[in-house]
Amino acid sequence: MRIAIEHRTQYRFSEPQARIVQMLRLTPCDTQDQTVVSWLVGVDCDARLRDAGDGFGNSVTMLYAEGPIEALDITVTGEVLTSEASGIVRGSLEPLPPLFYLRATPRTRASDALFAFAAESIGAGDDRLEQLHALNAALRQRFPCVPDLPDAGCTASKAFEAGRKVSSRDVAQMFIAAARSLSVPARYVSGYRAEDAARSAPHAWCEAHVEGLGWVGFDPSTGLSPDESYVRVAIGLDASAAAATGGMRIGQGQEQLAVDLHVDQLGGEA
């Protein structure tokens, strides 16, 4: 599938900023089933951009801008070719061992209620892949019609117990917390999914490591594994570690953030 992406992030400041430093996790990497045809990251002010990589193997762009800055627009445009892999991640850069992804973070610690839900969802079988698919489907059933929304900083356990107004990133973190509580390495994935509607945030899903298969994707917002309509961009222990943008600014005043995102299917490998 050929997928076109337009992603614009707008920052507006109530007072001019003296300096801005941002780490942008906005560039997908090539894998066996994902090829970046074209990709451009641009800004609307005088800034330095430096391409690098982080400890998870993500492609990152460091942005440095000197003030006074009253507004900042970051734009991403590109096309990616994908192929169906039944959710299995093949050919990705893996600088860290799977056991690293058993590490809990403040946002992915499982409460007693979430652990009990995970244990009940997987049933009595011992096939690990089937258990993870059952957990994925159970989260979809409990939280149907989950949208892509900006990160509100919620933890997996708090979102699970609140039971309402959850986003794709919330249910992804629930899956991660539940999987790790069952001693399964799991990680967060940020990226794009081809749909007709425009959205205000990237899509989120997760991956779990299955012995004999490697990393396998699960999307609890659909109850299925990612297919060729997904573009995988960044991974991390939780949503914070794979955020599309993050950094610091030197200056007073308030910040407003707006995101405009369009992901369109263009067709096959033409």
Rank of each mutant, 00 (worst) to 15 (best):
A172E: 13
A172M: 11
Q173E: 15
Q173Y: 14
Q173C: 03
M174N: 14
F175R: 13
I176D: 11
A177R: 15
A178M: 13
A178R: 15
A179N: 13
A179T: 12
A179Y: 13
A179I: 11
R180Y: 10
L182G: 11
L182Y: 13
L182I: 12
S183T: 10
S183W: 10
V184F: 13
V184Y: 15
V184G: 11
P185W: 13
A186D: 14
A186T: 14
R187T: 10
Y188Q: 13
Y188C: 10
Y188M: 15
V189P: 02
V189N: 10
S190L: 07
S190Y: 02
S190V: 12
S190F: 00
S190C: 14
G191K: 12
R193Y: 06
A194P: 10
A194D: 12
E195K: 14
E195L: 13
D196I: 06
D196L: 09
A197W: 04
A197T: 13
A197L: 11
A198G: 14
A198D: 15
R199V: 08
S200I: 12
S200D: 14
S200H: 08
S200T: 15
A201E: 14
A201W: 09
H203M: 01
A204G: 07
C206H: 10
C206S: 15
H209Y: 15
H209N: 07
H209P: 00
V210Q: 02
V210M: 03
E211I: 00
E211Q: 11
G212R: 05
G212S: 08
G212D: 07
L213E: 13
G214V: 04
G214D: 09
G214K: 05
W215A: 02
W215L: 03
W215V: 02
V216S: 05
G217S: 10
G217L: 04
G217M: 04
G217A: 02
F218K: 03
F218C: 05
F218R: 06
D219L: 01
P220W: 07
S221E: 04
S221Q: 03
S221W: 05
T222D: 02
T222C: 00
T222I: 00
T222H: 01
G223D: 07
L224Q: 12
L224S: 11
P226Q: 05
D227C: 00
S229L: 01
S229Y: 00
Y230W: 11
V231T: 05
V231L: 05
V231C: 01
R232K: 13
V233A: 02
V233P: 04
V233L: 03
A234V: 01
A234F: 01
A234E: 01
G236T: 03
G236C: 01
G236S: 06
L237S: 02
L237A: 00
D238S: 04
D238H: 07
D238G: 02
S240A: 11
S240N: 05
A241Q: 06
A241F: 06
A243S: 15
A243F: 04
A244P: 10
A244I: 05
T245H: 06
T245V: 08
T245D: 04
T245C: 08
G246K: 07
G246P: 02
M248R: 14
R249M: 04
R249Q: 02
G251C: 04
Q254H: 07
Q254N: 07
Q254L: 10
E255C: 05
Q256T: 13
Q256P: 00
Q256R: 12
L257F: 09
V259S: 05
V259F: 01
D260N: 09
L261T: 07
L261S: 08
H262Q: 14
H262A: 12
H262P: 00
V263I: 11
D264C: 02
D264S: 11
